[in-house]
Design a protein around this nucleic acid. Structure first.
Lengths: 240, 240, 240, 240
DNA sequence: AATGAATGAGGATTCATTCAT
DNA sequence: AATGAATGAATCCTCATTCAT
């Protein structure tokens, strides 16, 4: 596995100590990477934050880049656990859709700097393709595609939807919309945005009578027809 | 303004020569930045491409970063001219919307590496906010917002649209969707994608009777009512 | 003696285990040093080859350099045993000379990388002088000097030979000649080279009548003289 | 050409200054490399010796290794000039042979540390093969082979000599013999060694009547024959 | 207008070695 | 007997930038 160096500690105490160190380093790396970006971060600074020397960091991680990828993988793993748990408990396609959108927004609000790292330093690099991070990302975004497919199967969504494009419009739209927040400006009202995203996606933007309106109108017409019919019947009765 | 150094050459010939040099440098910088990214590019390499020394580049540009921003501004200016021309000649809100989407896709297809520079190296840096590039970007994305507003004003779109979110879903969705292409993998069918984006945006994804169907139904009801009315009138006439 | 750390284990089983470990380490070190050179080899890599940690290696050897010297001493010891055995069974100065030359060539063919280590990393360092390795090397090269001296004593070689120079021309010549092979290129025909070396050394390069020719010529002259003498005697007899 | 970075200075003054700098760096590098060896030398130390920073060295040389190779090439070039000049003025194969041997010894005596560098750091590395240094070395050693061939052509040397082996025995023998001196111990009597080398090579080591002795012997026999002949003739005259 | 020399700071990575457990 | 964590020093190379000519 790319990332942490292999270790086969015999005793559990040793293993635990090692894992604790790994955590400490990842924690320090996360902070420094978030604050300075990948290029701007110095391994020495990460090490200094733990009170160790650079060499120590390299005992646990192959390279600075491996460290970055591990930091992001940890984060992704946590997010991912959350997602699956919550999603299982929600019924209704639209509600499930909203949950995914809301969760994504919450991830961004919780760790905007990690998002920035992900977008800037990782996703556009050639080594991203094929990395564990990429696999996790695909599993993650696939959840949305699955929910959309459920909606199609249930007859709630049109059958001819371009699912990958929809996925990209939702996640890409969220990221674009959150960009200022990610870059440290402003706030992020994740509930409102989640509602808006779902509304735009589900209803589109065309101004047309809503189904409810049309039904009301239809009911009115039917009532008129009824009245007419009754009048007609009454008239026929007089004649007879 | 950040960018080219101020110069007030006495003779116009001198001025022309200077501008030619600026163009040459920008051209070389564009190539090197695209190939290596910002951090990976060396000013020396850009200079060498012209057969000049590093110092010469600094006679025309304040810094490496200013050079990058200028490169992207040039590119944006060209794109922008195109946009305005084309947009003026298209009628119909939906057609205008599609034109903007299509143009954005075409920009990406024409210069994916510049797009990558823009996303990676510029948009997430603090100095982007407030730069000329940012202003141009806002003018550019504002076109889409304007078209959407026109649609609202014309009654074609709902009045309660969250316009900034829509803008982000469209541009963010396009970028997400084109990311593989931007990173050098695969192809980009800009016509098909433009159609799909516009369709998703305008109609949403909910499976429901289309407005046309509902209107046809309403017309049928009206016809029934007509017939009844006529029968009623006829019956009244007999009675009289 | 530089090299293995002193240890006085109480029980012989412990001692045996320790010696086994020492052998394992030397074996691993030999491989890594040969493949990477001294500077290029990492103690960690040597340790990893045994599945132990770096610290363990330092339990058995003072330093990386001591390890190198020990590796080469082991190799030398093996070679040396061979030499003495074979040499004892060969008669004739020239044959004994050829044996030493051939043996040296065979050592090179068997372990070119160890030779390279010896030449590159050890022989030119100040700590070589006075090391056990140096002593062994001197004993080894002394064999050749001894054989030459035997030849002188037996009247087969000239008495005024510069023995140390001859020794260096033979060993140095062999090493030079084998250098490409030592560096991994080509092959080494040790029988042919041994023949040529001995021939050059024994006969020199001057084109001159060989001793055999000269003796034949002398015999011819003597025969003539004989015949003349007989004729002279016969003539004298007649006169008497 | 590997080594010094390309430069196309317009003005000769600039060119001269650059070349002076190159010389200074090569000079400093030579000293440090000789004193510390290649691995032991730090580029920073070389730079400090000139009062410049490391970066400056890298403006003139691609890498530390390129610097080493250049140092040795300069040295080789100087030696090479000497060789050709001197050799042209010497007649007689044996004298020419001795000149080459003597020159090689003198090179070693003049710059033993550079020799050590050459042997230790360069000749055994894979990048030596095919380098300019290698080409120069081959031209150099070829001179010896040429002289030997001349001797063969003139009938002074045997026709069946293994020339490459001879070359290696001479140069390799010299190096071996000079090794202590190269490593800083003892002195080097280049005249005596040159004589001995040439003597060993030309005459070999076998104890046999020298050609002169044999000729003297032959002359004695001839004299005896003469006397006999005369006595024979006198006797014949008496008889008549 | 261009040169080209020089700077100076930085930064990732490697490794022999030590020591407490 | 072995571990494994930690050290700390060292080093090559890069580069944006400046400035005198």
């Amino acid at each position: 596995m790319a990332g942490a160096l292999s270790a086969a500690p015999a005793r559990p105490a040793v293993r635990a100590a090692r894992e604790r160190r790994v955590e400490e380093i990842l924690e320090a790396a996360r902070e420094v990477f978030c604050r300075k970006g990948y290029e701007g971060a110095a391994v020495a600074e990460i090490a200094a934050r733990l009170g160790v020397v650079e060499g120590t960091v390299y005992k646990y991680f192959d390279s600075k880049r491996a460290l970055l990828l591990q930091v992001l993988e940890r984060w992704y793993e946590q997010m991912f656990g959350d997602y699956s748990q919550h999603l299982a408990g929600v019924r209704g396609t639209r509600q499930r859709l909203r949950l995914l959108v809301w969760h994504h927004l919450r991830s961004i609000r919780q760790a905007p700097l990690l998002c920035r790292l992900m977008f800037r330093e990782v996703r556009s690099e050639p080594d991203y393709r094929g990395s564990g991070l990429h696999a996790m990302n695909r599993r993650h975004t696939q959840l949305l595609v699955d929910v959309l497919r459920e909606g199609v199967a249930a007859g709630e969504f049109r059958a001819d939807l371009p699912l990958p494009l929809l996925r990209d419009m939702i996640y890409g739209g969220i990221e674009h919309h959150a960009w200022n927040f990610i870059c440290g400006r402003g706030d992020l009202d994740i509930d409102a945005i989640a509602d808006q995203v779902v509304a735009v996606v589900c209803q589109g933007i065309a101004a047309r009578p809503k189904a409810a309106d049309l039904e009301a109108q239809a009911r009115r017409l039917a009532a008129i027809a009824d009245r007419m019919e009754r009048r007609l019947t009454a008239a026929s009765g007089k004649n007879a």
